[in-house]
Nucleic acid binder design. Structure first.
Lengths: 337, 337
DNA sequence: GAATTGCATGTAAGCGCTTTCATCCGTGGA
DNA sequence: TCCACGGATGAAAGCGCTTACATGCAATTC
């Protein structure tokens, strides 16, 4: 059945050294003679020894645990197609450390309080925070409490917190420019919610591109959506009603772009002949829409790796405190534009 | 900055009792006089005391941590639309316990070994295992090691492990029967991979329904897919080629059903007039396809709650060892059938 | 009123580890 | 040959908690 796990002491006895020495070997201290080390390692392997984390944390005050905190009142995060990738990315970034990944969901006031208290009491060494709405008090609370924290996505303007984000603005700009430079004269946009930085950034990228090509932003060419497919469909209809001659649209994310595509098809517009469409995110479905969706891809793996790396750096050097990483995006050319 | 967390001893001093008493209060031992308890609770609240898990585990040998283990060589799990829901479900099921959710990904041989060793060494109190392919050694290894474990999804036939699953067979049978009893004479199916129990179960549900209505299984009416949208499209084409008069199809999951729908549309078949389609899972997109997809829904919340509950029971009573829960599914009537 | 009981509370050991400090041994210089 | 030195190793304390056991007090019994 369940044999009690071997302890440091047993290893020490087997290797005929003291527990202190074994501990030094386990923790890679340089002050151990090679042959002693060898002997200890043999004993460790023989017994299948694995250090007891509880005992270790008790003395080191470190927990070797980092938390992925999902701070969201609703369950929107779970419909975020990137959430799984992010988890996977973090998980593989820490795969060859001793770190473990704790998942903390903070929905609603009560859980928020619980999570914050839990973290503040030093139960985790660091936090990666996914939080969608801007007025979340958690990011600030944690950093003020001195807990190493890294945000997924740019914080609100004015907040200085370490974060990793895609170059949403640059990506949007590139997408829109692509439309414009292909001779499209009337390019609209369907934005995301403007209370999220992603929403704002992608919209600003659109206006950047307009400005680059000497055009003015026309309010009638802008529709807002909430990142859902239905919102995209709805917004597309509105745009078309106001501007029947519209010939290009930059959509702030793929689900909305897919909704737009369907509306376009239903209304008999050919894509890309009549209207060119570019989305953002390159979700799995984007490759199989009709026509396949041209979209902007974020380097998800690079981003998660960067988050993990930034966090680890912050954990062992608290002075690092307002770094950030912005990752370049890439336009994936498919048939819709 | 980061004030050291208050300890039991400080609470004891403030409440003018011994640490033992405080501990008893914290652990809800009944042998404490109400007024003493009151005083201690006041001190706890005043200091914002939270027990140190490391110290506690060290003596109790419990970790108050359960792991969600995702055992999969590839990253398929992450494309599983239910994965987030499951996480969310477990997370809320343990929300008002002291338990924490640890996420362990085991891809590849190396991580598998690491995860197994980690778990065997008592670093978690219990495990919820999501594993897609049938020949995974982990489920058996864990149960044999005496680690309380609950599977998400039915294990291979012959394995006796506690699990929670949807009534895939019943759901498939109901869906197919619905098609049959609506007068569809030639009902085919697109199955999932038959090396997964879900795949097999849903296929058997189809044959059950056929048998119920006195029909024989016709091999030509069966196509296999890998649960992807493209596979669904491909399979649909094959089915139609062989049986142009096909007037109904039960598809083993929604993405494949969506693929099938698109093929049907591309080939000019009207849904449901010419061909009725029923999917399985009720993914978010199912409601917005054209026409909206009739599908079978699993009671995801009920299922995850059941998993958590089963696991907790197993944790404090190891004798419970081959229970399982099968949750009824529901046919969601929309326009496609 | 003394002896007994029962219950609340306190004392203290010890969980497995890291780390400080002391100890020991071999080396090289005088 | 002796001493000083430095580097490897060991002894032991202590991290914050739970719990077996001891203790003390009040209520109960005769």
């Amino acid at each position: 059945m369940r044999r009690p796990a071997p302890t440091l002491e047993e290893v020490a006895r087997l290797a005929a050294v003291s527990t202190a020495t074994v501990s030094r070997v386990v923790n890679r201290s340089p002050k151990v003679r090679p042959d002693t080390r060898k002997a200890v390692e043999k004993a460790i392997a023989h017994l299948g020894y694995v250090p007891n984390r509880a005992a270790r944390s008790l003395v080191t005050k470190r927990t070797d645990t980092i938390a992925l905190v999902v701070s969201e009142s609703e369950s929107r995060v779970f419909s975020d197609p990137f959430f799984p990738s992010i988890m996977q990315g973090i998980s593989s970034a820490i795969a060859d450390t001793e770190l473990q990944l704790l998942l903390l969901l903070a929905r609603g006031e009560r859980e928020h309080v619980k999570v914050e208290r839990y973290i503040r009491h030093g139960h985790v060494d660091g936090v990666i925070l996914m939080s969608l709405h801007g007025d979340d008090p958690l990011p600030r609370a944690l950093t003020e409490a001195g807990i190493p924290t890294v945000l997924s996505g740019r914080p609100r303007p004015g907040e200085r917190l370490p974060y990793v984000d895609a170059d949403n603005r640059g990506g949007a700009r590139a997408a829109t420019s692509h439309l414009l430079s292909a001779g499209r004269g009337k390019v609209g946009t369907i934005t995301g919610p403007l209370d999220m930085t992603v929403g704002v950034d992608r919209f600003e990228g659109y206006t950047d591109a307009l400005r680059d090509s000497g055009q003015r932003l026309r309010k009638g060419l802008v529709e807002h959506g909430d990142f859902s497919k239905e919102a995209g469909a709805r917004a597309m209809k509105a745009l078309l009603r106001r501007h029947p001659a519209l010939d290009g649209v930059f959509v702030a994310n793929d689900p909305m772009a897919i909704g737009a595509l369907e509306t376009l098809q239903a209304l008999g517009r050919r894509v890309p002949d009549d209207v060119a469409v570019i989305g953002f995110d390159d979700v799995a479905d984007a490759a199989t829409t009709n026509p396949p969706l041209t979209t902007v891809r974020q380097p998800l793996e690079v981003m998660t790796e960067a988050m993990a790396e930034l966090l680890l750096r912050r954990i062992d050097d608290a002075s690092v405190d307002d770094e950030f990483v912005v990752c370049p995006t890439r336009l994936i050319h498919r048939a819709s534009a």
